[in-house]
Amino acid sequence: MLRPTQRSANLLGTILVAGSIAGVVLSAGAVLALAMLGADTRSWPLSLGGWWTGEHALLRFSAGLGIVLLAATPVTTLVLFGIQALREGHGRTILTVVGLLMIIISAVCLNLLGVRSA
């Protein structure tokens, strides 16, 4: 199975740090701005029904986008690792990455289909 080179490990590490900081700053900054503007943020979930609706739509959109960015960051590293494995022809690594992506895609699909267990 593939082991990443130090160069690719550096790239994965930079993506993890930069992605998480960007997501957190975007989300926390937007929430702070909304609080300063006196917007009502009670009962404001991240939902596919539209977390950005209501007043200050751009700020609301940014707050949710930041969290989506934070969640997408580790998935991006997984995809990049999979691409590297594909290029170098490491079959077992490709299968592992595809398996992990299938689990994440299943979770997103369940969310999209609105599967609620309660």
């Binding site: 957190v24 989300s27 934070l70 299943s106 969310n111 599967v115």
Partner: peptide
Amino acid sequence: LTAVPALCGYVSRNQLDLSLAGPLA
């Protein structure tokens, strides 16, 4: 990577409060 699929379940039930998530992170 473990948190991502788990989080999807909470999002589908509208249980991730955006007014708390950003400041907590």
